[in-house]
Simulated scan of single mutants.
Amino acid sequence: MQSIHGNILTPSGFVCGDIQFGADGRIAAITGSPVATASVRGAGLPLVLPGFIDLHVHGGAGHDIMEGGDAALHVATLHARHGTTSLLATTMTAPQSDLDMAFAAMGRLCAQRAPNAARVLGVHLEGPYISEARLGAQPPFARPANFEEIHRLHALAPIRLITLAPEVGGNAELIEQLVAEGFKVQLGHTTGSYEQGVAALRCGATGFTHLFNAMSALHHREPGMVGAALAHAEFAEVIPDLLHVHPGAIHTALRAIPKLYCVTDSTSAAGMPDGDYKLGRHTVTKCMGGVRLPDGTLAGSVLSMDQALRNLVDKLGLGLADASHRVSTYAADHMGWTDRGRLAVGAWADVVVLDRDLALQAVYVEGGSVSLG
């Protein structure tokens, strides 16, 4: 039985003690005494947190999810080395043939966990059901939502999350049925109004894709989709690379949205040197710490979840427990995964171990140790 000693973040707070997990990949026991959150980084003991959960991952290690083949495995391997223990492989807006190829490849990986890789729990279908006017870095293949296409793709690999623009013809009317069939729906890449955002939430949409980016902005007479999120959302994604969103805007969202959680929106350029990479059918350039289209538009990121945690704590001033919830627990809550994103007996042993500087020391995915080399 594997045992780790340190300051362990449990659902009721930090304890100084031991966490144990066995061959079934689940946590068997947590023992120890409560310790104040304010003192855990100065105690000289390892920090033991829930493994990171990333619901928006396009690529990494030079590979793009839309390539098909073994690209998703390379992506999951790269992100596991940065503490991501489970993720949703995220697609781009694309023709049907491109999506079919990518989904066929991801279905094989979703069926079982690969060693030294994050668990790919399914697909985030980011587009093609988005606004042509808010493509951001998405290629120009936007179209209204289509149940036949969704069902065909879902048969190839499990779709867990769908981003759509509610103002696009027919999309709003489909939200209730999509939710009834078990799909999570969030709003993004949208020109929709505040009223359309609120109506979509009432129909069952539960989140917002990369809040502030590629959506109608907040204005005091036209609150837009951002206003709908800030006024009514329980969940929303944000990209905390400090390029996509100003720290002040992140603080605003933290005050307004109870379970604001972090995603990387990472591209194939993550973990790679500066240069040109693929993002769906686009070529993007990594430079100056970001990824851009030729016209300068931000095109995903090179963020990793361990850096997201450090940004939240060291740059934005969040407490460690709060930051951990936002890179792990709240994403699991959004998806309804009660046995991930928390260190509790019976939950999956998805664990990260960090030093006082929040540098990774060890990663475990369903109890299996990940090579960080």
Rank of each mutant, 00 (worst) to 15 (best):
Q177N: 12
Q177W: 07
L178R: 04
L178S: 09
V179E: 01
A180R: 11
G182R: 08
G182F: 10
F183D: 01
K184L: 10
K184G: 02
Q186E: 13
Q186L: 15
L187C: 14
L187Q: 13
L187H: 13
H189Y: 13
T190P: 13
T190A: 09
T190Y: 07
T191C: 11
G192F: 12
G192R: 09
S193I: 09
S193T: 15
E195M: 11
E195Q: 15
E195P: 09
E195K: 13
Q196C: 14
Q196L: 15
Q196F: 14
V198G: 08
V198S: 06
V198Y: 12
L201D: 03
R202E: 08
C203P: 05
C203H: 15
C203T: 15
G204M: 15
G204D: 14
A205N: 11
A205I: 15
G207D: 11
G207L: 13
F208E: 08
F208P: 05
F208T: 02
T209D: 14
T209A: 12
T209C: 14
H210G: 02
H210Q: 05
L211M: 07
L211H: 02
N213C: 08
A214W: 05
A214T: 05
A214E: 04
M215T: 12
M215K: 08
A217K: 06
A217M: 07
A217G: 13
A217H: 08
L218S: 02
L218P: 00
L218D: 00
L218M: 14
L218I: 09
H219E: 09
H219Y: 10
H219Q: 12
R221I: 06
R221P: 03
R221D: 06
E222Y: 10
E222M: 11
P223R: 09
G224S: 10
M225C: 11
M225F: 06
V226T: 10
G227Y: 11
G227T: 10
A228H: 12
A228Q: 08
A228E: 04
A231C: 13
A231M: 13
A233I: 12
F235P: 01
E237C: 07
I239V: 03
I239F: 00
I239K: 00
D241T: 06
D241C: 05
L243N: 14
L243T: 10
L243C: 12
H244L: 10
V245T: 02
V245P: 00
H246A: 09
H246Q: 10
H246E: 02
H246Y: 04
H246K: 03
G248V: 03
G248Y: 01
G248E: 02
A249M: 09
A249K: 01
I250R: 01
H251P: 00
T252A: 07
T252E: 04
A253D: 05
A253S: 05
A253G: 05
R255N: 04
A256F: 03
I257G: 04
K259T: 03
L260E: 04
L260T: 04
Y261G: 06
C262F: 08
C262S: 03
